[in-house]
């Protein structure tokens, strides 16, 4: 496949000329690529208006912002909110909990759709394949509220269906309140994420798999490759770019734990492991009205996200992958 991009159909554009084109005669570049720039324009306008225009909002983090007084009327306080955040008694715990969940996410939740997509790809009965495919992505449509109440139904200490089975299997000593115990909080969160998002996540990989040139399999088979070698030598390399892109993009959201899911699963008994930046910020920002403080936390998460996403992109490139660009 044509993976390395040929330079454009340059009408005798040498490399030297091109470099100059980028620097000095901007007009020349604009003229030569006018169609491409034209196509770029609506998108750039979108990002300028809806993404960059509101970015002045981060100044809230350095103010004691009151919506009523607005951006110009609220007093400036410098780095006060950042100091509060980093010196607060909860910072270490929030960081640890957030990172722990992120780690579990990378190790378990991220690869799950890839594995399921590969398994689906190996299915030869097209009816089964289609049915399974159309069923497993449905949970994506249910809100976390519904997921949480289903979880409760299944895992409640008293009458939960699954806790009942476990009790039948292991006897009454195995009576555990899964919804309350600290040690069961993370497994349940991960289970919920797997249940809700795995099927949905396969879609992008299935689309990538659909793009694999069948001739490659043909060729591999001619070389005497069995199924697993075909998987290894043809299928995996074909979806690798997608996996890399997804991984890099996911790294930027590492500190996002998903507020609603965690908020719903938090109880008085598991709060010490359940508190993450997202829930804390919600409580501080929305319930307590500390908009500036929660913006400061958001800013901190944003900086971390930028470092992570550009860092992992750099790393991917160092490892010989294409990266984001």
């Amino acid at each position: 496949m044509a993976t390395d991009l040929a330079p454009p159909p340059p009408k005798a554009a040498t490399k030297a000329k091109k470099r100059r084109a980028g620097k000095v005669p901007l007009r020349a570049a604009l003229a030569r690529y006018r169609w491409l720039y034209l196509m770029l324009l609506p998108g750039v306008a979108y990002f300028a208006i809806f993404k960059y225009l509101p970015m002045y909002g981060v100044t809230i983090a350095f103010q004691d912002f009151l919506p009523f007084l607005g951006y110009s009327g609220s007093p400036w306080v410098g780095f006060k909110h950042f100091e509060d955040l980093f010196s607060g008694p909860d910072f270490g715990r929030l960081m640890f909990n957030t990172l722990f969940l992120a780690l579990l996410h990378i190790v378990i939740v991220f690869p799950a759709p890839i594995i399921v997509a590969l398994m689906l790809n190996e299915l030869r009965v097209s009816f089964v394949k289609r049915s399974v495919q159309s069923l497993i992505y449905i949970p994506h449509f249910l809100s976390w509220t519904i997921v949480a109440s289903l979880t409760y139904l299944l895992f409640a200490a008293d009458f939960g269906v699954i806790s009942g089975w476990i009790r039948d299997l292991l006897g009454d000593t195995a009576k555990v309140d899964y919804m309350a115990q600290e040690e069961w909080f993370r497994p349940l969160i991960i289970l919920q994420q797997l249940w809700k998002q795995t099927g949905w996540g396969t879609i992008i990989y299935l689309a990538a798999l659909a793009g694999v040139d069948p001739n490659l399999y043909e060729a591999a088979r001619m070389d005497g490759a069995g199924r697993f070698r075909q998987l290894w030598h043809v299928t995996l390399p074909a979806i690798r770019p997608t996996v890399v892109v997804m991984a890099i993009l996911a790294s930027g959201n590492l500190l996002d734990s998903g507020f609603e899911q965690i908020w719903l699963m938090t109880t008085s008994l598991n709060r010490s492991v359940a508190d993450v930046f997202d829930t804390y910020v919600y409580y501080a920002g929305i319930t307590q009205g500390a908009i500036s403080y929660s913006t400061a936390v958001g800013l901190f998460k944003g900086v971390a996200g930028v470092i992570l996403i550009f860092g992992s992109n750099w790393l991917a490139k160092r490892l010989g992958q294409r990266g984001l660009f």
Partner: peptide
């Protein structure tokens, strides 16, 4: 007291 007093959904 119900054993799940820390987790019983208030709506239930």
């Amino acid at each position: 007291v119900n054993p799940d007093f820390a987790t019983l959904d208030a709506a239930k």
